[in-house]
């Protein structure tokens, strides 16, 4: 641990903006010991802590007719710009939480507020508009196979009725941001897993959502590529986007040292500001 801290200070000297800046590629790349992630510096964080983005109060959801994981009296408050890890064993209820936040499910009890929206009282027809304020990234990328990277990103704009001129302007920018400049016209099968996930992140981020939900975004990626994706998410988090990431990757959690919320049997057993996987 001491070694890590020391490393962190040297890294800070190099670049205070990119926690992955020191990660070198090649032989040492997979060496996690060299990957040191600093938490965002305190001043910055307090500056963006203007309001709560997520409030879960006494949220309970049971599935009486199936053995899907339920959640029991969950209370979570997450600020704007926070980066939060959701950890816990399979079946603990993490994905149910994501479903509740996406309003794919409605809780039995309790209230969920995202931004200004009371999700529990949201009318059905208002759900699409609500989802536009949330970006989503998944383990399996969920790209359209018959569309290029740029078209996949543009699709998110297209289906919510943004004019084509907006897509022409915004899509290249976002792809550049996620590091896919020059690969706009590749199809998903012509991209590596990491690149496909970058497209997915670009699509989630293109509408500048308030909240980005990432359900095991590195689950299908090798360690190197995972680091790249984490670096990308970190950069996005620094733009003020709240990120909620479900993960089983202990290395990432341990080295990012961000807020960790651990769930077990549908209940929060730990909520730690700069937690480790544990």
């Amino acid at each position: 641990m001491g070694r890590l801290t020391m490393r962190a200070s040297t890294v800070r000297a190099k670049s205070s903006r990119d926690p992955f800046a020191h990660v070198t590629y090649g032989a040492e790349t997979a060496e996690y010991a060299t990957l040191v992630l600093e938490p965002p510096d305190r001043l910055r964080t307090s500056a963006v802590r203007l309001r709560l983005v997520i409030q879960l109060e006494g949220v309970t959801k049971h599935y009486p007719r199936s053995n899907r994981p339920s959640v029991e009296d969950v209370n979570v408050f997450i600020d704007k710009g926070e980066f939060v890890f959701f950890i816990g064993p399979t079946g603990a209820g993490k994905s149910t939480m994501i479903k509740l936040l996406l309003r794919e499910e409605v809780p039995d009890k309790g209230t969920i507020t995202v931004g200004e929206t009371d999700v529990t009282k949201l009318r059905r027809w208002k759900v699409p508009a609500y989802r536009r304020s949330i970006g989503c990234v998944f383990q399996d990328f969920r790209l359209l196979p018959n569309r290029t990277a740029a078209e996949n990103v543009a699709f998110a704009l297209e289906v919510i009725g943004k004019p084509r001129s907006v897509a022409r302007r915004v899509v290249p920018e976002v792809l550049e941001l996620v590091g896919l400049g020059g690969k706009e016209h590749r199809y998903p099968h012509e991209l590596s897993g990491g690149e496909q996930q970058r497209v997915a992140v670009a699509r989630a981020f293109v509408n500048r959502p308030l909240l980005l939900l990432a359900d095991e975004p590195t689950g299908n990626l090798d360690p190197d590529t995972s680091i790249e994706i984490m670096r990308l998410l970190d950069r996005i988090s620094r733009t003020g986007t709240t990120i909620l990431m479900v993960t089983h990757d202990s290395n990432i959690v341990n080295q990012m040292r961000r807020r960790v919320i651990e769930i077990e049997n549908g209940q929060i057993v730990r909520d730690q500001a700069r937690g480790v996987y544990g």
Partner: peptide, 16 residues
């Protein structure tokens, strides 16, 4: 179903 899932995810209106 892929397209539909993605459309719903990014908040496409139901009629669309």
């Amino acid at each position: 179903r892929r397209e539909v899932a993605i459309m719903k995810l990014v908040g496409a209106p139901n009629w669309f």
